[in-house]
Amino acid sequence: MSQNIEKIAVLTSGGDAPGMNAAIRAVVRACSYHNITCIGVYKGYEGLIHNNLEELNARSVRNVINKGGTFLKSARSKDFRTEEGRKKAYDNLIANSIDALIVIGGDGSFTGALKLSQEFNFPVIGIPGTIDNDINGTDFTIGYDTALNTVVEAIDKIRDTASSHNRLFLIEVMGRDAGDIALNAGIGAGAEEILIPEENLGVDRLIESLRKSKESGKTSSIIVVAEGDTSGKNIFELGEYVEEKLEDDYEVRVSVLGHIQRGGSPSCYDRVLASKLGVGAVEALLEGKRDVMIGIVHKQVTVVALTEALQKRVHKHDQLIKVADITSV
Rank of each mutant, 00 (worst) to 15 (best):
S255Q: 14
N234E: 05
E251P: 03
N184R: 12
V252W: 08
N200S: 07
L148M: 12
V252D: 09
I155E: 11
G232S: 04
D160E: 14
A182V: 00
D249Q: 11
S216C: 13
S213N: 14
E247I: 14
D204G: 06
L277K: 05
C268K: 14
N200G: 04
C268Y: 13
I207A: 08
Y144D: 00
S275V: 05
I155C: 12
I207T: 07
G143E: 03
V173W: 00
L238F: 06
I235C: 01
G278C: 06
V225M: 05
K157W: 14
I135S: 06
A274Y: 10
E240F: 15
G263Y: 00
D177I: 04
G143Q: 04
H165G: 01
P266G: 07
H259S: 07
D229A: 12
L273K: 05
V254L: 07
D180Q: 13
V256A: 11
G179Y: 06
F140S: 03
E193L: 13
S221L: 12
D132T: 03
G179K: 04
S267A: 10
L257F: 11
R262W: 09
L273C: 07
S265E: 15
G137P: 04
D160L: 13
I131E: 13
A154G: 07
A147H: 11
Q261E: 15
N200Q: 02
V256L: 14
K245P: 08
D134V: 02
E192Q: 15
E215N: 14
Y144Q: 00
G278D: 04
R271Q: 15
L257Y: 12
I223H: 06
S216T: 08
I135E: 10
K233I: 01
S163P: 00
L277G: 08
G202R: 14
D160A: 14
V225I: 13
V252L: 09
T230I: 04
R262E: 07
E198G: 08
E192S: 14
D270A: 00
Y144R: 00
G264K: 13
S221H: 08
G217E: 15
S221D: 09
D145P: 03
S221W: 02
G202K: 15
V224C: 01
D204V: 15
N166Q: 10
L183S: 04
L183P: 05
F169D: 03
V173A: 04
Y250P: 05
T150L: 13
I158T: 11
S220Q: 06
L170P: 01
S255P: 00
D270E: 03
D160R: 14
N136M: 03
A189G: 14
S220R: 02
K212V: 13
A162S: 15
N166L: 03
I158Q: 06
E193C: 15
E199C: 05
K245Q: 12
Y144A: 04
S265Q: 10
P266W: 02
L206H: 05
L168W: 11
S255V: 12
I196G: 05
A274C: 06
S255K: 12
I171C: 02
G239W: 09
L238W: 14
D134K: 04
R176W: 02
G232L: 00
L183Y: 07
T138G: 01
D134N: 08
S163V: 12
K233V: 04
Y241R: 13
R271I: 07
A191T: 07
I223Y: 05
I135N: 09
E153P: 10
V203F: 08
D180V: 01
E227K: 02
S275N: 09
I142P: 01
G143V: 03
D134P: 10
S216D: 15
S209Y: 00
I171A: 00
F140C: 01
